[in-house]
Amino acid sequence: MITHTEVDSPVGTLTLVAVDDALSGLYMEQQRHRPPQESFGERDDAPVFDETRRQLRAYFDGALTRFDLPLHFVGTPFQQRVWRALQDIPHGTTITYGQLADRVGSPAASRAVGLANGRNPIGIVVPCHRVVGSTGSLTGYGGGLERKRHLLDLERGALAAF
C-alpha cells in the first residue's frame, strides 16, 4: 500500500512516501525528477512517518548524523547499489562522483553514477547531497544547489559542535 504525507522543514515542505511500513520517497518542492503527485497514493499517516519526522527534526537540529529507517528502494539494480553506497558517506563529508563510482565497483561509470544519484528517491535520508564534482564544486542536486549548500553547511556546523 502506497501512502504519503507532508512535513515542514528548514528546506521547505517535504513529501514523504511509504510503501507499506517502509519509507520509499522523500521529495522536496520543485525537485527535479519528482514523480507526479498521483503516484504518491492516499494521504495517510503510516507508522514510518512518525519516526521519519522525529529523525528529520533531530537531523535539522544537528543531533542526528545517520538515519535509521526502514527503506524501500524502487529502481534498477545499479541505481539501488548507488543509493545504498550513498548511505555510507559520513555525515559532514563529501565525495566525488568518481569516488562513488569506485565504491560501487564501476570506476569508469561516474556519469552513470551521477544519473543514479540524481534519481535518488529518498533525498536527505539517503544523502545524495554529499556528492560533489571532481573539483569539489557543488553540482547537480535535484533539490537545487541552494538546498544542497544548506544541507552541507548544516552538517559541517553540526559536526563542529561535537
Rank of each mutant, 00 (worst) to 15 (best):
H4C: 09
H4S: 07
T5G: 06
E6N: 10
E6M: 11
D8W: 08
S9P: 06
P10D: 01
V11I: 14
V11F: 09
G12I: 11
G12S: 06
T13D: 07
T15W: 00
A18I: 11
V19Q: 14
D20M: 11
A22N: 02
A22L: 08
G25V: 03
M28K: 12
E29A: 15
Q30I: 03
Q31F: 00
Q31R: 03
R32S: 01
H33G: 01
H33I: 06
R34F: 01
P35A: 14
P35W: 08
P36N: 09
E38K: 07
E38R: 12
E38Y: 08
S39F: 02
F40R: 13
F40K: 10
G41V: 05
G41I: 05
E42F: 13
E42Q: 15
D45P: 03
A46P: 13
V48L: 15
F49M: 13
F49V: 08
D50C: 06
D50M: 11
D50R: 14
E51G: 07
R57Y: 07
R57S: 07
R57E: 14
R57G: 08
A58W: 08
A58D: 12
D61C: 09
A63K: 15
T65N: 14
T65L: 04
R66V: 10
F67R: 10
D68R: 11
D68K: 13
D68F: 10
L69H: 10
L69V: 09
P70C: 12
P70R: 12
L71A: 07
L71S: 03
V74C: 09
F78I: 00
R81V: 00
V82K: 04
V82S: 04
V82I: 06
R84Y: 01
A85P: 05
L86Q: 11
P90H: 09
P90L: 07
T93R: 13
T93P: 04
T94S: 09
T94H: 01
T94P: 01
I95V: 15
I95G: 06
T96V: 07
T96S: 13
Y97F: 14
G98L: 04
G98M: 03
G98F: 02
G98Q: 10
Q99P: 05
A101H: 02
A101D: 00
V104W: 01
G105A: 01
S106V: 06
S106A: 15
P107S: 15
A108P: 02
A109W: 03
A109Y: 03
A109R: 10
R111L: 13
A112H: 05
V113I: 01
G114W: 07
G114E: 03
L115N: 03
A116K: 05
G118I: 05
G118P: 00
G118Y: 07
I122C: 02
I124D: 08
V125C: 05
V125N: 04
V126A: 04
V126H: 05
P127E: 02
P127L: 04
R130A: 13
G133W: 02
T135E: 12
G136P: 04
S137I: 00
S137G: 10
L138W: 00
G140P: 05
G142I: 00
G143K: 01
G144L: 01
E146N: 02
E146Q: 06
R147F: 05
K148H: 04
R149L: 06
L151M: 07
L151S: 05
L152P: 08
L152Q: 10
E155K: 09
E155C: 09
R156A: 02
A160K: 15
A161H: 11
F162R: 15
F162K: 14
